[in-house]
Amino acid sequence: MRVPILSLGEVLVASIQDALTDRGWRQLQADLLAQAGRRPPPGSRRKTAPRGVVIDLSTMDVMDSYATRSLDGIARMLALRGAETVVVGIQPGVAFAMAQLGLGLASAGTAVDLEAGLALLAEQVRGDGRHHGA
């Protein structure tokens, strides 16, 4: 299954609707990397390539070590392309299981939902000069 990616001004939104296979994660990585680096066509209102990416996990019921590592890798690659990533919608049980596994996200910010994620991105993009630990 391919994850649809929506463009909202300077921000890309990818909402993962189903458990992804390994191939699904690689496809999402390739799609986000391609879109995050793409400048808008001449005449668009938007002048720069997307500077922020929101990845929505609100319908995901499992984030195991492989999925978390894939997600963090995507955020690290996007940072190298000049885009900030915020992961939103991690459910309480998923957060619990991830913490039990010792999993976290080093290269992405997190927010409780899409609205909070967009607000966080707006702050980060305005703040600039912020360096990633990746």
Binding site: A19, D61, V62, M63, D64, S65, Y66, Q91, P92, G93, V94, F96, A97, M98, Q100, L101
Partner: peptide
């Protein structure tokens, strides 16, 4: 998915279902 579906019939909490599915995912991998 199979583990979660079967566990759901036993009355596990939502958090327990996620823990079971995550453990299955790690061991399966």
């Amino acid at each position: 998915r199979a583990a979660r579906a079967l566990a759901a019939t036993l009355g596990f909490s939502e958090t327990d279902l996620t823990m079971i599915a995550t453990a299955v995912s790690e061991i399966a991998r």
